[in-house]
Design a protein around this nucleic acid. Structure first.
Length: 493
RNA sequence: CGGGGUGUAGCGUAGCCCGGUAUCGCGCCACAUUUGGGAUGUGGAGGUCGUAGGUUCGAAUCCUGCCACCCCGACCA
């Protein structure tokens, strides 16, 4: 195995693919488009899950689980929904295998054909709404605030580890409300939760916005999203929240008795974030030496590497290391002591850089003698020797971790600012998209045709209509027709 | 699914044009010396050459189908 990672500047895709594999995050599986999430990658996902789950529960949601299989007929009940997903559904047609004639293999038993085929869920709106019909009768049953952690399958043409896989893990929230406004508030609340999670935990600045009709979820009235910018200047949708109106309530006949004695359809929302967040995390911060993980999501925030000759020296360093570990753990800092004798310190340094551990402590005989440690930051690769005599180590490390979290965010934020450009002419739009990339803030006449045309011409799509954009009269970048405000264009993942 | 490329030991590769069962590096195992940025030496193990057929006395090499991966399109979180 060659030691260095491919350079981002030379081949960004190759760098990403290699990084995912070399950092032990994931690998390809025998099935096309599916991936094995390895223990290290999965433990990052678990940290994301834990935090999101906490945020959902804090806002009144509870978890449930709905089945993997959906009767084919359910999917067709909401017209635009089926239109959006039909082309990428895996279908179960049989329920039994049998030995082939020659006994050497197994074949699908033609006798065991299902009467109604089952769809492997691409998303669960349909099963869930068919269930909600039974759960909701009165305004007293509302709001219904449910989330599920699940796997879904979308048979994509082209896949990439984490960013787009045939099967992926996610959470999907599905809520039902008595009023339109309440449902809209819920939709916006969840977008804000995603944005807060991305910024606080992933150290990933995001743009909050609304999708154009073309980019909207199949079956939604409005799709809210958070959009992040990757280091190659391409945008990535990191979470979506949909206001479903009464579309699914009508499709599945979910009505409730109002306080006033009327009978009305409920208002729905759904919202999701997936293992794609892993891709965002990797691409947003990492460098040519490997992963850079924000301390709040790193499986190990600190690693201690002993430097020693012989058993006796290791034993003396270990005593000191144990003291440090005890202090750090008491402060809630996760720390790994790598006392393996099978690898040399230099090898370990490179390894933990590849894996993105935020802080590394090196301790050798010299440190023992001077009562010092060597501290190395992963984010900016700086090193310092710290004298333990005059600091409270756990405070010092804790502050340093906060500082790293903040610096990573700040760096990504500055990058995004630098890569967000206001453009006013079509020539400039085309030129900047090629030379610089990033978000292009431009006027758009609001029509699907224009958006479509721009996509054909440049591969750029409207990422979102920023939620906090200022109203301003202008002319559409392509058609020159009147526009009431700017939208963000970018090439996207 | 269309166009292009690749598939040889755990990983990365040479060999393929011009058929004679395989090269090198990393990793792995053993021993010794090493240990403050991916150690060195010596010895060793490991290969249905993606897969199924075909041509041939003989196929990694030539032909056909299939599969997977990568890049570029169409689709998408």
């Amino acid at each position: 195995m060659s030691k260095g990672l491919p350079k981002r500047s030379e081949d960004y895709s190759l760098w990403y693919n290699e990084l995912v594999k070399r950092a032990d995050l994931a690998e390809n599986s025998p099935v096309r488009g599916c991936m094995v999430i390895k223990p290290y990658g999965y433990s990052i996902w678990e940290k994301m899950q834990a935090e999101l789950d906490r945020m959902f529960k804090e806002t009144g949601h509870t978890n449930a689980y709905f089945p993997l299989f959906i009767p084919k007929s359910y999917l067709s009940k909401e017209a635009s929904h089926i239109e959006g997903f039909a082309k990428e559904c895996a279908v179960v047609t049989h329920y039994r295998l049998k030995n082939s004639e020659d006994g050497k293999s197994v074949i699908v038993d033609p006798e065991a054909k299902l009467e109604e085929e089952l769809i492997v869920r691409p998303t669960s709106e349909t099963v869930i709404w068919s269930t909600y019909k039974n759960w909701i009768q009165s305004y007293r049953d509302l709001p219904l605030l449910i989330n599920q952690w699940a796997n879904v399958v979308r048979w994509e043409m082209r896949t990439r580890l984490f960013l787009r896989t045939t099967e992926f893990l996610w959470q999907e929230g599905h809520t039902a409300h008595a009023t339109k406004q309440e449902a809209i508030d819920e939709t916006i609340q969840m977008m804000n939760i995603y944005a807060g999670f991305a910024e606080t935990f992933m150290a990933l600045p995001v743009v909050k916005g609304v999708k154009s009709i073309n980019e909207r979820f199949a079956g939604a009235e409005d799709t809210y999203c958070i959009e992040a910018l990757m280091q190659d200047g391409k945008a990535l949708q990191a979470g979506t929240s949909h206001f479903l109106g009464q579309n699914f309530a009508k499709a599945f006949d979910v009505k409730f008795a109002t306080k006033e004695g009327g009978l009305e359809y409920v208002w729905g929302t759904s919202w999701g974030a997936s293992t794609r967040l892993m891709g965002a995390l990797i691409m947003a911060h990492s460098d040519d030496n490997g992963l850079v993980l924000p301390p709040k999501l790193a499986p190990n925030q600190v690693v201690i590497v002993p430097i020693y000759k012989g058993e006796e020296e290791l034993a003396r360093i270990s005593i000191k290391a144990r003291e440090i570990i005890t202090k750090l753990k008491a402060k809630g800092i996760s720390v790994h002591f790598d006392n393996r004798d099978t690898h040399k310190p230099g090898w370990k340094f490179a390894e933990y850089e590849l894996k993105g551990v935020p802080l590394r402590i090196a301790m050798g005989p010299r440190d023992l003698e001077n009562n010092t440690i060597e501290l190395a930051r992963r984010d900016n690769l700086s090193k310092e020797t710290v004298y333990l005599g005059e600091i409270i180590l756990e405070e010092y490390i804790s502050n340093l971790l906060d500082d790293i979290q903040e610096s990573i965010y700040r760096k990504a934020f500055n990058f995004r600012e630098k890569m967000t450009t206001e453009v006013n002419t079509w020539a400039e739009f085309e030129e900047l998209l090629e030379s610089k990339g990033g978000f292009l803030s431009a006027h758009w006449d609001g029509t699907s045709e224009t958006e479509e045309r721009i996509k054909e011409l440049t591969k750029a799509t409207i990422r979102c209509i920023p939620i906090d954009r200022k109203e301003e009269d202008g002319k559409c970048i392509l058609t020159g027709n009147p526009s009431k405000g700017r939208v963000y264009f970018a090439r996207a993942y």
